[in-house]
């Protein structure tokens, strides 16, 4: 099957109860090209209009920063991209457990082995990870971790939030893609496999027609290093292929939030997010 061309329109809207005078924001919504995907066009627009500033952050993500200084009660951020995606790549089977335990390797990927606020060390889960890896090679262990997470968590939006850590999600036994990914990362790092968080978009159905616009979603999956980096979608048990568009990688969600910002005052705000995805070819 040949590569797909997908248009993504990611709209985020805030409505404030009282006018907000100052607001500073950063959007991480711009996909980057690599061996697997080719970005044809991408832009981030805001309403009210702003003068945007772009830079590449520590993780290599393209950041669009903008600020507002006139009173406003609504803010909309629209990221539009057209991306060509490719067929899935097979997992990289280059490293054994001994290779992964090597001091040089562990130091090289130190950041992707460290525990963070979202992905915190836990003795019980460490034990589960040790059980899981027994008798498997690293690649199999990644897939095993994914299916273990799917056994443990029920996909259910609304119970967990963006601040929920892997451990909290595991205790509530529910979660969304973010929680699935954090829990998988936790297991992989307990096993000693360097693993990172990937944020992006997923076209929901395999059988989407060309020119059809569907309600897509912001999505997340993992990448593991087993001699080389490769992606895996633990939420849906999917290889990373035509339907996945990646935007940013980091240690956990905190490194890759699609939109973060602050505004002056204490007005309460409501949030509205939609992702429209159209398969163009």
């Amino acid at each position: 099957m040949a590569g797909w061309r997908i248009r993504i329109v990611h709209e985020t809207g805030y409505t404030y109860e009282s006018p907000v005078v100052e607001s500073y924001n950063e959007a991480r919504m711009t996909p980057r090209s690599d061996a697997r995907q080719n970005v044809i066009a991408s832009r981030v627009e805001t309403s009210p209009a702003t003068r945007a500033y772009r830079y590449t952050d520590y993780w290599g993500t393209l950041v669009t920063a903008f600020d507002l200084h006139a009173p406003h009660t609504e803010l909309a951020v629209t990221a539009t991209s057209v991306v060509e995606t490719a067929d899935p790549l097979p997992p990289v089977r280059g490293a054994t457990w001994e290779d992964l335990a090597d001091e040089d390797v562990r130091d090289r990927f130190a950041e992707m082995l460290e525990f963070t606020g979202y992905v915190g060390h836990d003795p019980e889960l460490a034990e589960a990870a040790a059980d899981l890896r027994r008798g498997l090679d690293p690649v199999e262990a990644v897939l095993a971790a994914g299916s273990w997470v799917r056994e443990q968590l029920t996909y259910q939006p609304g119970v967990t939030g963006v601040q929920t850590s892997a451990l909290e999600a595991w205790h509530t036994r529910t979660g969304v893609c973010q929680d699935f990914v954090h829990l998988t990362l936790l297991l992989l790092r307990e096993m000693g496999i360097p693993a990172r968080y990937v944020s992006g978009y997923l076209l929901p159905r395999e059988d989407t027609d060309v020119r059809e616009t569907v309600q897509g979603e912001s999505h997340a999956w993992v990448e593991a290093w087993t001699g080389g980096w490769w992606g895996y979608d633990p939420t849906n048990d999917l290889e990373i292929g035509n339907r996945h568009v990646w935007v940013a990688v980091g240690r956990d969600y905190a490194d890759v939030p699609p939109l973060k910002g602050i505004f002056s005052g204490q007005a309460s705000s409501t949030l509205n997010v939609s992702v429209d995805m159209t398969r163009l070819a």
């Binding site: 830079y55 952050d57 520590y58 040089d104 562990r106 130091d107 090289r108 130190a110 950041e111 460290e114």
Partner: peptide
Amino acid sequence: KVIPRRLITTCAHFHREAAG
């Protein structure tokens, strides 16, 4: 390899926001 990478990455005051 003069100093280990994790010396840096585990430092609470290594601010990735200041990279670049």
